[in-house]
Design a protein around this nucleic acid. Sequence first.
DNA 1: GAATGTGACGTAACCGGTTACGCAGCGCTG
DNA 2: CAGCGCTGCGTAACCGGTTACGTCACATTC
Lengths: 355, 355
Amino acid sequence: MMTIMNGKNPVPTIRAVAVEAGVSVATVSAVINQTRFVSAETARRVNEAIKRSGYRPNRLARGLSTRQTKTIGIVMPTILSPIAPLLLKSAADVLHEHGFAVLFSNTEMQATWEEQAIELMFDSQVDGLLVVPASETLDTLKLFADAGKPVVLLLHGLSGVSGCDVIRSGNFKGSLDAVNHLIGQGAQRIAVLALPLVSESEKDRMDGFRTGILAAGRTLDPELIRVGAPSESGDSEQHGYQETLKLMTLQHPPDAIFAMNQYMAIGALSALKELGQRIPSDVALIGYDDLIWTRNLEPPLSVVAQQVELIGRMGAMRLIGRLENNDRYDTPESVTVDTHLIVRASSDRAGTATG
Amino acid sequence: MMTIMNGKNPVPTIRAVAVEAGVSVATVSAVINQTRFVSAETARRVNEAIKRSGYRPNRLARGLSTRQTKTIGIVMPTILSPIAPLLLKSAADVLHEHGFAVLFSNTEMQATWEEQAIELMFDSQVDGLLVVPASETLDTLKLFADAGKPVVLLLHGLSGVSGCDVIRSGNFKGSLDAVNHLIGQGAQRIAVLALPLVSESEKDRMDGFRTGILAAGRTLDPELIRVGAPSESGDSEQHGYQETLKLMTLQHPPDAIFAMNQYMAIGALSALKELGQRIPSDVALIGYDDLIWTRNLEPPLSVVAQQVELIGRMGAMRLIGRLENNDRYDTPESVTVDTHLIVRASSDRAGTATG
DNA sequence: GAATGTGACGTAACCGGTTACGCAGCGCTG
DNA sequence: CAGCGCTGCGTAACCGGTTACGTCACATTC
């Protein structure tokens, strides 16, 4: 049974340990960090003193004097997005393996908050930063640039900001693949439930869609392009539902729908079922991001799957690379991680998908 | 266009600002922290110097001398659980509002990792700790107890550890409500897809189930109690599926199934459909935790919903209360947050649920 | 045996803040 | 006008580590 002691005997410092072991602080520091040779006997005494006193080095003090904290900051617009937890986990795992602590900030899509979070990270002297940008630009990143500290952007880049690595998701090709697949399934009129074009990701998805349509020698019908609510608004599903209802009452309704996020896909699904449309024979449906439950829908949903885990790991690795190799003066690198098209029953008119 | 400067002119310190403004460091510190009176004119000069130099106080240095970092640690067994992101978000939001930074650690259910994470938080001098325990006990929390730093446990307590506040989830009553509801719907043989009894939560859920059955004057049929895989194993859904298949081939199969996590509920759903069972008329089904997509299943799933967001907020508030009121010597408090039973079509034989 | 080298460790400055204490100048009182 | 208190601010110690530099004892060399 453990009870609160009110900190009777204060936390031991390195000086206390030095006294205990009858050596100097330099020696204690040396045995802890293996930073210079210490005789076996002395080392033994020091280690014993450490054990006895329960001494634990203060990371603040260490960080202050070494100017590195072994801490990196992760800034995300919202942890409630379906892919955010995996992104956070995969990055955090890699960082943990390499001995880094994680300062986390969930900025709830607020631009000022996002800037504040980055300032907070800077003030906390993090060694580097992992950011999933929500705003179009982030002036505060200049703090890191000036300090020569590495920043890696995840999922998409940021206009007006160079000097950061970017691990992008292949949204352009993802959308393109989706369109081509639908065309391959015989779709004649493909509608899209798009997202407001705030970040590079949404623009890329839209560009991919356009390119796919035009490359097939078709024209873009404005009626078939519907802009919904962002995933984080909570209205996304409702929008998908409403827009789908409208789409299906057009004079020439679509025979395929590409939803650029999962919530809108669900909304569309509800609407189509309610209208008695058969999926995929009347209307084929494809969504974005492969979540656990997409294959449990009726019918299982085809999706464009981002390799979220890989992106998280790569971002963390890149950051650690910059830190450890000190190659922070290189030109920044940009990587694009491909998406995968996962075909399930919702878009598979041949009925060959394995689900 | 921003480029890396390699930190040419070093980050300004408080001393540099003091020189700039022609005052002492004490005065600069005073105007920043409003800690003593400074004449308007002097304050103006200081603020100008701060602005000009782009000075930002170093949180490490501040933390070192004040012994508080305005940082709190959050330790979770896995951010990939369906309720973890909301728990993290709600706690982090409250902390952010009160000016705290968040050190985050995802321990992947590993006991040693969990202890390490807590040590890391301690070494980082966090002011307090928010923990969702995975292990049965956590010796490392003694570090915080000895230092007089508050710790709040989330979702469930920890055996052998007193001195921490606990914000519990009302799992006992949650299960009890579920059972009573199923009985009220006329269920005669209620099966349970249970979880390994590792933490208090699972034990409470199981106890609630037992109590409900016995209170109705029935007996517990061991055949109807199936222990599945933990949510985090990734096999949970598969287990739910398999165990449901087995359940339905019993001589006396159940007419209701209570799944103690959402994944098993989905597995059960798949199995029941595959067997051509009608839900809820042949078999009623109820799950745990109200996720976004539970109502998009066929049929929409009844669930026991934990008030995850409330638990997160309360935990953070409690921690901040301890910190700000300095009432850390109180006896620890334990709160239990009720669950809500959400009845949807999967268990509603009267067909009155609103979905 | 003096000079030089080397192995093992100690001293004290430093990182960048906060703050206890001190001090000068002024107005006021008796 | 000596003495007192108050106002506004500076000096330097301190938080707990790291590390450049110094020192001492002993071995080696010629």
